[in-house]
Amino acid sequence: MITIKHEGCILCVGCSAVCPVNAIELKGTRMEHYAEKCIDCALCVKACPANVIKMVKKDGV
């Protein structure tokens, strides 16, 4: 799954533009990630110009 480091996020919404399943949306002043919709494709990780989205293993496994 992915994690977003919100402190470095510039709210450009590039991640939601490339997300094929609408699993990241701007909510107020923060990008919200809906893990239940996420398909772990990592496109947002690649697109993020601020480099604040990372893939992490589920439950540290």
Partner: peptide, 10 residues
């Protein structure tokens, strides 16, 4: 929807 090969990141 924008597939990754159809975007430039800036």
């Amino acid at each position: 929807y924008h597939p990754l090969h159809e975007v430039d990141t800036c």
